[in-house]
Simulated assay, not measured.
Amino acid sequence: MGLLREAVLAGGHRPGDRVREAPLAVRLGLSRRVVRAGLRAPADEGMLELLPGGATAVPAVTAKDVLDLYALRAGLGALLIRRVAMLGPENLAPASAALAEVCSAARDNDHIRIREDDLRFQDALARIADLPQAAGTFERLTARLRMFVTVLDMDYSQACDTIADEDTAVHDALRDADGNEAARLWRVKIERCVRYMIAQLPEDDVAPHLWTTLAGRPRLHPGEPRSAAH
Rank of each mutant, 00 (worst) to 15 (best):
P218W: 03
L80N: 03
A43D: 07
A78K: 09
A37T: 03
A60T: 07
D205E: 13
M47R: 07
G136W: 06
G75R: 07
V35M: 01
D172Q: 15
R140L: 14
V149M: 04
E6W: 01
A105Y: 11
A134G: 02
C103I: 03
R127S: 00
Q200N: 14
L119K: 13
G38W: 11
V19C: 07
A105C: 14
T213L: 14
L152D: 00
G88H: 06
A100H: 07
D172A: 15
A106P: 05
T56R: 13
A164T: 12
G2D: 12
H171I: 04
R187N: 11
L30Y: 11
A173Y: 10
S31L: 00
P42I: 06
E181H: 13
G54Y: 04
T212V: 01
V19A: 13
V151Y: 03
L39F: 08
T212A: 14
R83N: 00
A78C: 04
R32E: 01
G2C: 01
G12P: 10
K64G: 11
C193Q: 09
G179E: 03
M154I: 12
H13E: 02
G38P: 06
R226N: 08
S96E: 15
A105M: 10
R32G: 01
W211M: 03
D65H: 09
W186N: 01
G11E: 10
A43R: 05
A182F: 09
R40T: 04
L119R: 14
G12V: 12
R115L: 09
V151P: 00
L87A: 12
I114W: 13
A7I: 13
A228Y: 11
A124W: 00
F148H: 15
L92T: 04
F121K: 02
D118W: 10
V102K: 09
L69C: 02
E101S: 08
V8I: 05
A183Y: 14
L76R: 00
F138E: 00
I114E: 08
P218K: 07
L210Q: 07
L3Q: 09
R73M: 11
C193W: 08
L24E: 05
A124G: 01
A106D: 08
R195G: 15
S227D: 03
A78E: 05
E45V: 09
M47Q: 07
L125W: 04
G53E: 06
R217E: 14
M47D: 05
R192E: 07
V206W: 10
V84W: 09
R192K: 14
A78H: 02
P218V: 09
G11R: 11
S96Y: 00
R36F: 03
A182K: 10
P208Y: 12
R113L: 14
R113T: 14
A229L: 13
L92S: 10
T62S: 15
D117I: 00
V8A: 07
R5M: 02
G136M: 08
V35P: 06
D68H: 08
R82C: 04
G29H: 08
D178Y: 11
H221M: 06
P52I: 12
D130S: 01
A22L: 02
A169S: 14
T62I: 02
I112F: 15
N180T: 04
D108E: 15
R127E: 03
Y196L: 04
